[in-house]
């Protein structure tokens, strides 16, 4: 059986908010190392890979592998009943028809319990190769969100270019063009504001802003975001969570005709 207790319901609420635009139904794969999820969007252009390590829960118990097939819209309806600060416990039997969610407020004078029906989801898992990315950029997640939003107003696509000058986000649309340059920045007192650029070779790739905008829905999960790029491979956008848990998005590049 599965029993996983989260100190703050906010984490699961934010995870579901972050992925439900991209994916409507997916398996939450539970095993003794934690709860994972891998799913592609319908067009097979973007993929979300999330893993909440067992250390992110207290306690965490999962005796055997359990796949919880969940409709994220339905899960979100149930999670709306949880306050951000509530303690959230997920429970399921070994071959479950439902997942049980319990929300307790901090003063333990309210306990809400919901059963969410599960579904059989036949999901293909893709092998994501380990990549030594040519460029890794860490920046405030709010900054990346703003860049994505601002450029979306001008164009459908952005070209992310990383060279020894720094990183640039450039786009061109009907009304004109835009370009945002970021340079390395270190703030010892506020490391969340740091911009870090590590590059082994110059990279330039073009991506659909629509998907980047979807990924940015995870901004509330982490103050920093990491973009990993190599020429001619999908972009990885990572939001690191506590206890080595993470939510990662992959996006296939666009190529010129």
């Amino acid at each position: 059986m599965l029993e996983a207790r989260l100190e703050q319901a906010a984490l699961l609420k934010k995870v579901v908010d972050a992925i439900k635009e991209l994916v409507q139904e997916c398996n939450f794969d539970c095993n003794d190392s934690g709860i994972g999820l891998q799913a592609m969007d319908n067009s097979h252009v973007a993929l979300v890979s999330m893993f909440l390590k067992s250390e992110s829960f207290s306690p965490f118990r999962c005796d055997r592998n359990i796949a919880l097939g969940i409709n994220l819209n339905a899960l979100q309806k149930v999670l709306r009943a949880a306050q951000n600060e509530d303690i959230l416990t997920l429970k399921a039997e070994d071959a479950p028809d439902v997942v049980n969610l319990v929300f307790e407020n901090a003063t333990a004078d309210r306990i809400s319990e919901y059963d969410l029906k599960l579904m059989d989801i036949d999901q293909e898992h893709l092998g994501i190769p380990d990549t030594d990315y040519a460029a890794q950029i860490s920046m405030p997640s709010s900054e990346f969100q703003r860049i994505t939003r601002d450029l979306s107003a001008i164009s459908e696509s952005v070209t992310i270019e990383c060279n020894k000058e720094g990183v640039s986000f450039a786009c061109e649309g009907d009304i004109g063009k835009g370009n945002i340059k970021l340079r390395q920045y270190t703030n010892v007192d506020k490391p969340a504001e740091n911009v870090e650029v590590n590059m082994t070779e110059p990279v330039a790739l073009t991506f659909a802003l629509k998907y980047l905008g979807n990924f940015c829905k995870a901004s509330g999960l982490s103050e920093q975001v990491r973009l990993c790029l190599s020429n001619e491979v999908p972009l990885m956008v990572e939001y690191a969570l506590a206890n080595n848990s993470y939510i990662r998005f992959y996006l296939a590049p666009k190529i010129g005709d």
Binding site: M40, S43, H44, V45, A46, L47, E124, H125, L126, G127, I128, P129, S157, T206, A208, V233, P234, Y250, A252, P253, K254, I255, G256, D257
Partner: peptide, 14 residues
Amino acid sequence: KSRQQTLGKFFGKP
């Protein structure tokens, strides 16, 4: 004009 690629080209079945 540019063309959107899909992930299947890059990520295989494990």
